[in-house]
Amino acid sequence: MHILIVDRSGPIPAPKYGGTERVIWGLGKCLNLLGHKVTYLVPGGFKGDFAECLYLDQSKDLNIQIPNYIDVVHINYNPLQSINKPYLITMHGNPGAMDSIDKNTVFISKNQAERYNSEVYIHNGLYWEDYNTPNLNKKRDYFHFLGKASWRVKNVFGAAKIVRKANGVLKIGGGSRWCKRNFFRGFKYILDPKIQFLGMVNDEDKIKMMEKSKALVTPVLWHEPFGLAIIESLYAGCAVFGTSNGSLPELISPRVGLISNEYDTLAKALNTFEYDPQYCHEYAKRNFNAEKMTLAYLKLYEKVISGKKLHQQNPEFSKEKNKINQLT
């Protein structure tokens, strides 16, 4: 089978941090290892030895950029047009209430699928062989937040509030202390020496930071479609504490973390949880690896190649299921 993987985010692999880019890098690698041919169609090029690359021109019709020899097209954004080849679309974000969703859409968590009245989903997986192996025996004496801190719904100051209640130290990867938004949203936290902003962290620094962290604190105030920071933290041996929004309840089992919508409950758990870095690490490798994800996609590739649709009706936004659970 020859698979064309299409994405408009940037180069493969991502030069620093990139969510979708990491997922489709692992997908392409595993497809190649399983004996399939892979071509990327992306705007920033590809550096690797397991696939070919074509350059995506987003100003042109996608169909004229798909070679005739391709068997199936795997698109990683909503193209908003008909595709002439067998195809499927992975929905990495949350479409709005008025957005059109294709019948061949695959969601990336059960929760995300349910919020659009669908049952078709495949969990993201990462190619863990690309990651440095964490030292699971290091002393862990702080907590961490990983994500775009400037994005309100990621709730970095909610994480800071929880960790302060637990009298802990929080290291924030993905945000700057001295920015305008922080002055208005969390001034008391940016002055707290126990709340430490690390800025953007690369892969090597990220693993080094996480392997000395007890847990990721991620009290999101939006429906996280999946959450690569969650599985990366688990891989590094960290537990995960978060809200019941989005994919979190299905990614976090009781042995690797806690789900709650109460600040006090989460804060208490930081100090009372029975941490098991080895179990968290194995849990991530076992459940969220690129090979498992790839095998699931191969089944759907075969389905669309045979002419079948993944949905009988177009998935639709559910207002009721998209309500956000607030922290109290």
Rank of each mutant, 00 (worst) to 15 (best):
A215V: 00
A215E: 00
V217Q: 07
T218N: 02
P219L: 00
V220P: 01
V220H: 01
L221Q: 10
L221N: 07
L221I: 04
W222A: 00
H223Q: 11
E224M: 04
E224T: 03
P225S: 02
P225R: 00
P225F: 00
P225Q: 00
F226G: 02
G227I: 02
L228R: 08
L228M: 14
A229K: 06
A229W: 06
A229H: 10
I231L: 12
I231P: 06
E232S: 13
E232F: 12
E232M: 12
S233A: 15
L234K: 08
L234F: 15
A236K: 05
G237N: 03
G237E: 02
C238E: 07
A239V: 03
V240Y: 11
F241V: 11
F241A: 09
G242K: 10
G242Y: 07
G242M: 14
S244L: 11
S244R: 09
N245M: 10
N245D: 12
G246C: 11
G246K: 05
S247A: 15
S247N: 13
P249E: 11
E250H: 14
I252N: 06
P254D: 11
P254W: 09
R255A: 12
V256N: 10
V256W: 05
G257I: 08
L258V: 15
S260L: 13
E262Q: 14
E262F: 12
E262V: 08
D264K: 05
D264P: 02
T265I: 15
L266G: 04
A267W: 01
K268S: 08
K268N: 12
A269L: 08
L270R: 06
L270P: 05
L270Y: 04
N271Y: 05
T272C: 06
T272P: 07
F273W: 02
F273I: 00
F273P: 01
E274S: 10
E274G: 02
P277A: 03
